[in-house]
């Protein structure tokens, strides 16, 4: 049991880029498209996902010996829902404005496939250290992906980054109509281009090292 499966360090590193949840696994697309209009919302969402994924992965890893195959998904969902509710209440209590901006997308973390996928792939098979490393790595990968999309969309669509005016806000708004980037189509366009870029880089690397 102990020897099979990647080590905690491998789990951690894989989540960030090689198995990035958004760019490589194409999971969690709903928040990726919905809350990347600006950096603040994207980073709050990433923080909430880190909390839920860490909590769920640890919990599932600790009770993995008790799981029955046909009831495991039920246990995952129950665990995830509990941590999501805590995150949702916490944001509503201490970050009221952000809670209004994120709206239903915090409760919707319950159905975010990244989390149930990590419970299934890693936490239900490996110990708590590997599960925690996996949760942190995957969450960092998710945060990185959201940040890349939110940066493009906020800078082009609103002329700001993290709400800080970059000095060309009026131009972005009125002359070039890049406001599209802040709207839902901007999310699809940005994700598509960045995803294409990531795939292109991956295939370029494969061509250079055909054996890998």
């Amino acid at each position: 049991m102990a020897k099979d499966g990647p080590t905690p360090l491998e789990r951690f590193i894989q989540g960030i880029l090689p198995e990035n949840p958004v760019y490589r696994q194409l999971l969690g697309m709903c928040p990726t498209l919905a809350v990347t209009g600006n950096m603040k919302a994207a980073m709050t969402m990433s923080g909430a996902v880190l909390f839920v994924l860490l909590g769920a992965n640890l919990m599932v890893s600790l009770i993995r010996g008790l799981l029955k195959p046909h009831l495991r998904i039920l246990v995952f969902t129950l665990t995830i829902a509990a941590f999501v509710t805590v995150a949702d209440k916490f944001i509503a209590a201490y970050m009221w404005e952000m809670s209004k901006e994120l709206g239903p997308y915090v409760p919707l973390i319950i159905v975010n496939c990244i989390i149930i996928c990590r419970c299934e792939v890693c936490a239900s098979k490996q110990g708590p250290v590997a599960a925690a490393a996996d949760a942190v790595g995957q969450s960092l990968g998710f945060a990185l992906a959201l940040a890349s999309i939110a940066t493009v969309r906020e800078v082009l669509g609103s002329g700001t980054w993290f709400g800080i005016d970059l000095g060309w806000r009026a131009a972005a708004y009125d002359n070039y109509k890049l406001v599209l980037m802040a709207l839902p189509p901007g999310a699809f366009i940005t994700l598509g281009l960045l995803l294409g870029g990531a795939n292109w880089m991956a295939s370029a690397r494969r061509r250079r090292r055909p054996q890998a």
């Binding site: 009770i63 029955k68 246990v75 129950l78 665990t79 509990a82 509710t85 805590v86």
Partner: peptide, 14 residues
């Protein structure tokens, strides 16, 4: 039993 126990525990925590 595990599902029921977890549901009770999570319910109390929430």
């Amino acid at each position: 039993w595990l599902v029921l126990l977890l549901a009770l525990g999570f319910g109390a925590a929430l």
